[in-house]
Measured scan of single mutants.
Amino acid sequence: NTCEECGKPIGCDCKDLSYKDRHWHEACFHCSQCRNSLVDKPFAAKEDQLLCTDCYSNEY
């Protein structure tokens, strides 16, 4: 699979995080606004962007 954020392949030695058929490296899986990691945290998706709950609450 190819990472949505950096565009590089996700190798066998990396954790592949996925959501709705989109894939990310663990280090690339972060909020589109504040850039905080979303690994093991709740998040929301809006208009193809992933947002942490704080940024989502502030926007919507």
Rank of each mutant, 00 (worst) to 15 (best):
C52W: 00
P9W: 01
G7F: 13
F29E: 02
E47C: 10
N1A: 01
K20E: 14
C3P: 00
D16N: 14
F43L: 15
L51W: 06
C31Q: 00
T2M: 13
Y56V: 12
I10Q: 01
D16I: 09
H23R: 06
P9S: 04
C28F: 00
R22A: 13
R22I: 04
A27D: 09
L50M: 13
C3D: 01
W24L: 03
K8S: 04
V39M: 08
L50Y: 01
L51A: 07
H23A: 04
N36V: 11
Y60L: 00
F43G: 07
N1I: 10
K15Q: 10
W24D: 04
D40L: 05
G11T: 04
V39F: 08
D54P: 10
H23E: 03
R22D: 04
C14K: 14
C28P: 04
L17Y: 07
K15R: 12
A44C: 06
C55Q: 03
D40K: 07
A27V: 09
Q33R: 12
N58Q: 12
F43Y: 15
T53K: 14
D21H: 00
Y60T: 15
E59I: 06
S57N: 07
D16T: 08
N1L: 09
S57F: 00
E5V: 04
A44T: 15
P42T: 14
H23G: 01
D54H: 08
D48H: 14
D21N: 06
E59D: 12
K15L: 07
S57Y: 03
L17W: 13
K8N: 01
C12L: 08
D13N: 06
L50R: 02
N1E: 04
C52G: 04
D54C: 11
L50N: 02
S37C: 06
G7N: 02
P42I: 05
L50F: 01
T53Y: 03
D40W: 02
D40A: 13
Y60V: 08
S32D: 09
H30A: 12
C6K: 03
K8H: 11
T53I: 03
I10P: 02
S18Y: 02
P9R: 03
E59H: 11
L17F: 13
S32G: 11
C14Y: 13
N36G: 12
S32W: 11
Q33F: 10
C3F: 01
D21W: 00
D40M: 06
N36L: 13
T53H: 14
D48S: 13
S37Q: 11
E5Y: 14
C6G: 02
D21K: 04
R22C: 03
C6S: 01
D48L: 09
C52L: 02
K8E: 10
E59N: 11
C52S: 04
A45T: 15
T53R: 12
D21M: 01
W24T: 03
Q49S: 10
N58E: 14
E5C: 10
Y56K: 15
L38C: 01
D16R: 08
R35L: 09
E5T: 10
S57D: 13
Y56I: 12
A44F: 02
G11R: 05
D13A: 11
R35E: 14
R22F: 08
H30P: 03
C31E: 04
K46R: 13
S37V: 07
Y19S: 06
P42M: 05
T53E: 14
E59Y: 00
W24R: 05
K20H: 07
C31L: 01
G11L: 04
C55A: 04
C28Y: 00
N58A: 15
L38A: 03
R22H: 03
Q49Y: 09
S57I: 02
D48G: 10
E47P: 07
F29G: 06
S57H: 06
S37T: 07
D21C: 00
N58C: 07
H23F: 06
E59Q: 11
A27K: 11
R35K: 13
E26N: 10
S37H: 08
T53S: 11
E5N: 09
F43A: 10
Y56F: 07
D48V: 08
I10K: 02
R22E: 03
A44P: 06
D13H: 04
E47A: 13
H25N: 13
E47D: 14
P42S: 14
S18C: 11
S32M: 06
K20F: 05
D40P: 04
C31P: 01
N36I: 11
K15G: 06
Q33V: 13
T2I: 15
E4H: 12
C3H: 00
P42C: 11
N36P: 01
C31M: 00
C28M: 00
S32P: 09
C12K: 14
P42H: 15
E4V: 13
R22V: 04
G11C: 03
K20C: 07
D54G: 13
R35G: 13
N58P: 15
C55G: 03
N58W: 03
E59F: 07
V39D: 12
Q49V: 11
A44Q: 14
D48K: 08
C28A: 02
S57L: 02
P9Y: 01
D48E: 13
D54E: 11
C28L: 00
H23W: 03
C14F: 14
Y60Q: 15
